[in-house]
Design a binder for these strands. Sequence first.
DNA 1: TATGAATGAGACTTCATTCAT
DNA 2: TATGAATGAAGTCTCATTCAT
Lengths: 192, 192, 192, 192
Amino acid sequence: MSPRTPEQNEQIRAESKHRIMEAAFKLIAKKGYDSTSIAGIAKEAGVAKGLLYNYFDSKEDLVKELVLSAMDEGDKLMGEMEGKEPNEVLQLLIMWFFREMRERPEHWRLLTELTLQIEKFDFVHNIVIGKMLEYIDIMAALLGQMGYEDPIGEARVIAALFDGIGIEILIAREDYPLDEMEKYLLKKYCNE
Amino acid sequence: MSPRTPEQNEQIRAESKHRIMEAAFKLIAKKGYDSTSIAGIAKEAGVAKGLLYNYFDSKEDLVKELVLSAMDEGDKLMGEMEGKEPNEVLQLLIMWFFREMRERPEHWRLLTELTLQIEKFDFVHNIVIGKMLEYIDIMAALLGQMGYEDPIGEARVIAALFDGIGIEILIAREDYPLDEMEKYLLKKYCNE
Amino acid sequence: MSPRTPEQNEQIRAESKHRIMEAAFKLIAKKGYDSTSIAGIAKEAGVAKGLLYNYFDSKEDLVKELVLSAMDEGDKLMGEMEGKEPNEVLQLLIMWFFREMRERPEHWRLLTELTLQIEKFDFVHNIVIGKMLEYIDIMAALLGQMGYEDPIGEARVIAALFDGIGIEILIAREDYPLDEMEKYLLKKYCNE
Amino acid sequence: MSPRTPEQNEQIRAESKHRIMEAAFKLIAKKGYDSTSIAGIAKEAGVAKGLLYNYFDSKEDLVKELVLSAMDEGDKLMGEMEGKEPNEVLQLLIMWFFREMRERPEHWRLLTELTLQIEKFDFVHNIVIGKMLEYIDIMAALLGQMGYEDPIGEARVIAALFDGIGIEILIAREDYPLDEMEKYLLKKYCNE
DNA sequence: TATGAATGAGACTTCATTCAT
DNA sequence: TATGAATGAAGTCTCATTCAT
């Protein structure tokens, strides 16, 4: 029973926390915030209920961290677009969006679910608004370079399109004509 | 002395039920289904908890009636479009949408909130999918008459746009540039 | 709208009260005291809930009157036995008991149900004990005249038999071999 | 520091469960199922309401376990009768019955109470009917060996007697002449 | 006398959180 | 660090009872 080194402890902590967040993500994305219980998360993560409170102050706090980490991933993308042709960037963005929707619809589910609980999760709300504006700016710059007459207007249209498609996918699930939409948008914004 | 007449009772009932539904609508649209308690609804409506169960079998039943009545209102519109020019209809639809968003964003809030709770409210979910397809068909017919090359594709785009704008308004509230978007869309789809 | 005469009022009262008691009896005998609601009784009786409180102070009070009236009926029988041969009386009692069990098992159901709720219905409890002793005395007198060695002991046996058969009928319902038991007891106590 | 061992937990759980079942038994046997609240049981057991649901799925489930455990005890007896003289067995049964009635009338109270709630506790009901038939068979075999002319009839009489005495004890409590009845039955069925 | 809308206490149950180990 | 038994506030729903008409 020799005591663990600080490094070992740190690693154990990181692993446990990761497992808990993964479990929480999975369940909340599937069943929603209110219908996901702490007990359920603990069970899914294979740890005891009490352990969650070693890492998170409350259920809300857990969600907060979850959202922040989910946002992070979205940001990386934009970085990768530096230095490419506007036309190509737009094409990549559209394709990336549809790939995301195919492969990880739950990410979108989680953010939407929590964003709509405006009262409860103020901070998600604020972050999301910020991101939205940021992305619209980037998109407007692109469209400006591509010669659009009202680039901000069209950027807002594209943003709304993405959000709208996202929500329709959440509702229609496998019935949604993802492929057709992708083709249509690529043709509309990138071809010719 | 004498008991109330059936007419008096009917009126009392109608009023109480209305008060309860209004209170429920207000709270659920603001805080979401799960975070709205029966006790809260009763308090908001100014009645005792128990009274709700004179009018609704359960909390879910209350929501059901709420949704059905919210849907009703949306349908009237389509009826009024009969016999008009496609171009005009599209313009009216866009204007109607933005008027709705300005005047009754809570309707949209309520439907969105409940639609996303897929497991819990199957029936909302199913109704909404049905409506979506129906509206896309109508819209595609219009666009076809207006000479669009791929009317179904563009109808889907418009539907997604409406949904996307709707959800962005829910999030951004008064910060959303409703007027600019309306102008932009009218120009894009109706002008020239 | 001429006012009713006192006699008319009295008759109306009697009728309403009777209807309520009948309804209460029926439902309590079938579903038990706790599972029978005031609303249910009113509905069964075809009157408004509020009316019950014109005639009875409370649900318990209603039950009290019900039990008292049910007891009454049992008493008449004993009166009719005056002046008959002991042997014949015993035979009549046994036959009467089985007839009752066939025709009105609910009476027994009601009394048993309420008698067992000792804490709640003290008064039923006391009345029942009194009756039991009274009947055992009468029976013992009979058996004494018939030459039984320990008439009180055998009277208690017969009383317990009746109670036991009664309760088994409540449990087994139509599966209970009523006919065989009747024949057996008649042979045992009355024949030869 | 270290978490409890599984054994420790097992013991804690067993103790808590036992305390809850004892409390439930006591209260239900005294006041009946409907009049016994979860809150009351928890208070009697000295635990929080919520804890009951760590051990039982519902109030009904709690009762189920209670009944099954009460039944168990009754069965052991029959096993001990193997290989004894019929005469002796009958005597032992009678004496056992009266001992039970003296020492644990609440067991009988609980089973009777629940058995009569036919609609609610189907499973008790079915089990009890099964046992009744089983015991009557055993008894009839005994009586057959002892030379009774109609052993099944007499077995039914004895069963009804036991049930009847049981219920009379529930009602009359300490006023019931247990000793005299026991003597009388022993003389009637076993002596001479 | 009669009605039934309204009340509110209290029932069962869930679940985030705490804490002894 | 980790466990899970225990807590208790809060939620949904039922129902005996009241009261304006």
